[in-house]
Design a binder for these strands. Sequence first.
DNA 1: AATGATACTCGGC
DNA 2: TTACGGCCGAGTATCATT
Length: 348
Amino acid sequence: MYLHIDMDYFFAQIEEKRRPMLKDKIIAVCVFSGRTEDSGVISTVNYPGRALGIKSGMPIATAKKKAPPADSIFLPVDREAYTQASMFIDGIIRKGCDKVVQASIDEWHVEDSDAIQKAPKIKEEIEKKSGLTCSIGVAPSLLGAKMGASKCKPDGLLILDKESEEKLISGSDVEKVPGIGKKTGEALRALGALKIQDISKIDPGNLVETFGRKTGSWLHELSLGEYKSELGEEKEQEEVSRIGTLKMKTRDSYILLEKLSDLEPEAKEWLMEKKKSYKTLTIIFITEDLRTHTKSTTFSHPLPWNSSTEAEKKKLIEEFLSENPMMIRRIGIRFGNFLDLGGQTTLF
DNA sequence: AATGATACTCGGC
DNA sequence: TTACGGCCGAGTATCATT
């Protein structure tokens, strides 16, 4: 059996715990972009906020219109604190279970033959030691466990047998299934599938044509109740990026380079800490229409974290500007294609 | 034509 | 209808090499 452990409104719950007096107020954790006073989006909001229609991804200004100022607080993200809490919880889960894969900052996948007994114990222990609640789904497949957890949240525990798992998945609205987002969901609805079971009526060839080979056949199998789940291997992070929003949209390469020089040290610090060298450098551009574009180069030899990137950054920016006439709103830098520096030391 | 590497977009959280 | 961050991996497209 599989467990899916999912922390409840994680970032906001941590902020709530830090400030117990705010417990019943609306707590929204925000990514302030700095472009204007309230530009940016909501990262997470607690349940009183959700009750008023505030959601992740919503612009902060829109959320503020829904929340009475006296009963609400809008806080900036404190990633370091959330990462620390995440690592602490990771330790608790690993102590109790053998096969554990951390799936994101606030989710874990576990395979355990004794899952039904262990699930309530882990839940209690997490709450006792961290003060934070989570929701846990237990099911014969990982997909069932995930959907079970989201069905019973917050602070829930749901155990599904083969039959109830099958029912939950096949009867679910398409966009409730992890892996099916807005785009895929809309496309499926356009093909006449509202629920997962409806997908079985669509010709598999049509699915592959619309969604590509991988997703198309995955959807087809899903609709027939075929979802094999294996716990993926725990993978090392494959790239690191830092991205930021410009005060004003621009096409001035000097301003763009200046912004990158704010972002780059943080990404490089990560490389240094993890002792990684990299082969691929990518510049990320978000144009005024909010579309994302990238330009990248791969070097024939890995470069150490402290290597200069000035010439390449300039080249990639100029290349992008020459082929896209739009103004740029956000810019970022990404390092990837890592090689462990191992015992080697950096050269000076 | 097959294989592997690289470039880029999509979209989940 | 639009408002709108900062990440990341998955998947696909394209290019290079044989």
